[in-house]
Write a protein that binds this DNA or RNA. Structure first.
Lengths: 300, 300
DNA sequence: TGTTGTCATAACCTTCGGCTATGGACGCCC
DNA sequence: GGGCGTCCATAGCCGAAGGTTATGACAACA
């Protein structure tokens, strides 16, 4: 009788890609049979085909074309609903939810908390760790009000200010041949197997694989969903991974060594929000982040 | 990440009833724990409560109030999407889908098919049996374009024309004490256990229980979802059931007897469509239904 | 003609969504 | 004031839904 909104996302993806294989792999990150099955379910529910598959091509039927705009509207409306709820909740509870993917550290949290307490007394901060599959750190689906995230953040609908710029280092297992070097040239590293972010992270995954400093794509030894998974994989010799200089300090481990990498552009940590979200708390939080790093730079 | 539209229906029901028990039993026809669980899931997904339950009352939180209009819009948009797809499909395939719950019979189908073939050549009819839980015979959710249904049909958004008016009869197990009578006064029947339509059928269920001819509610011995279920239940002695005179003929069985019931208003078979659905095929079908019965009345 | 790319099918496993049964808190009523 | 009914929550269970990998059929193409 009524459908899952996920199925409508699936439908829109196939309608736009006009290919089950590509929609499944490149956009939805599920297997192609799963996608075929779900679309078939949808077609059964409507008692009419939405696509014609003639062995080599996929095309919308009139029924599919009729559904497409409605499906887009439903997805958009749902996105708005999520945001409306999140904003109402945070207004009510006087809480600003801050998304992050890896430990923030760098003295940022106490400093920002203090600054916020001064500028906006009575408003609390809540930090929520979000999935590595979401490069917007929870902004996109309304899970968080503001995020502290490594660039790149998708630029459609999001704004940010860089908090700090740090060189990229590499995490190596303790006995690795390159651990002998004080500084590792990226050229030495390029052919190593890497531990990668999930493909859903898209540009962010590419950044930490240093894709734009390569001719051939990186060898991905494994995908990790958390920091611990990543470092366990590195410690076990599965591969190596790039990380920000500051994070090498935070995630210190006995079985790993961290080395600066030369020949790479630096990484940038930013505070990000949804473009057009002009709530005072959001603005003030972003300012506080920048204030704090300015102060840190000044004093440190 | 994204929700089932069903969960939004559940949410709206609770928000409007402000009671889990009532929303579950009276509107959604699921158990109260199932509803509680789903709402809780929704709240977990939003990371915020949507209702405050203080032991005796249920109220919306600000987050819940923010969600409510979006949820209503999503449900409405989905309904439109279903209809758009159904209309596109039937236009494309040149098929008009006719919903029905019990065998139509009465010579209607061949007569209407012939008339439609004359008035609208090239357009085919497809008959689809729909669930007894839906008193609109599939009109509401867009499953069908036009329905042949017993009144009452909900009057919010639906229009109909009566095709035929028939006395109500009763189906009794062969050896039943009332089978001895040629005509059964409803007063004799009122205290018998009845086989009922599902509660979701609402007014239609009430009609076939003859609720408006009773002082106390009918004793419901069982709920049946299909005609066969119904007559099996009657044959097994579980209870009795009312049906239209014409259906007594269609569903003739050796282990059942059918008797006219006195003291009841007659039943009405109607052709129904969505108000405002002004497609030619819909209009012509409705006219054809009436033409055919006029002719039948004239000749029979 | 073998290879590649695409969608469908099959077998399997986990999670979800429903049910019944039960429990605890509160208002009500004798 | 002690049962009683009402309401929401919890627990345990079960079938269906939704995902996975492995495999198959067929067209396009080198």
């Amino acid at each position: 009788m009524d459908a899952h909104l996920r199925d409508l996302r699936y439908f829109v993806a196939v309608a736009e890609e006009l290919s089950f294989t590509r929609a499944a792999a490149d956009r939805l990150f599920i297997s192609q049979p799963a996608l075929s099955k779900q679309i078939r379910r949808l077609e059964l529910e409507f008692h009419t085909p939405l696509f014609v598959r003639d062995r080599r091509t996929v095309a919308l039927t009139p029924a599919g074309s009729a559904l497409l705009p409605h499906a887009r509207r439903l997805i958009e409306e749902w996105k708005q609903a999520r945001r409306a709820v999140a904003e109402a909740a945070s207004a009510q509870e006087a809480v600003l939810t801050v998304g992050f993917q890896t430990s923030i550290g760098r003295g940022l949290i106490p400093a920002v908390t203090a600054t916020m307490g001064r500028l906006l007394p009575g408003r609390r901060l809540r930090f929520r760790q979000v999935s590595w599959t979401d490069p917007t750190a929870g902004l996109a689906n309304g899970d968080v009000d503001v995020a502290v995230a490594w660039l790149p953040v998708p630029d459609d609908g999001f704004s940010w200010k860089v908090i700090t710029r740090e060189d990229r280092w590499v995490a190596l297992p303790a006995g690795h041949r390159l651990a002998a070097l004080d500084v590792v040239p990226f050229a030495e590293l390029a052919d190593e197997p890497f531990i990668a972010l999930p493909p859903e992270a898209r540009a962010l995954r590419d950044f930490w694989l240093a894709d734009d400093h390569r001719d051939v794509p990186a060898r991905v030894a494994a995908v990790a969903e958390t920091a611990d998974e990543t470092f366990e994989a590195v410690a076990s010799g599965l591969g190596v991974v790039l990380l920000a200089a500051g994070n090498a300090e935070i995630y210190r481990r006995d079985d790993l060594v961290y080395r600066p990498v030369s020949g790479l552009s630096p990484s940038e940590l930013a505070v990000a929000w949804r473009t057009g979200d002009d709530r005072e708390a959001v603005r003030v939080f972003a300012e506080a982040c920048c204030l704090c790093t300015d102060a840190a730079t000044a004093t440190g």
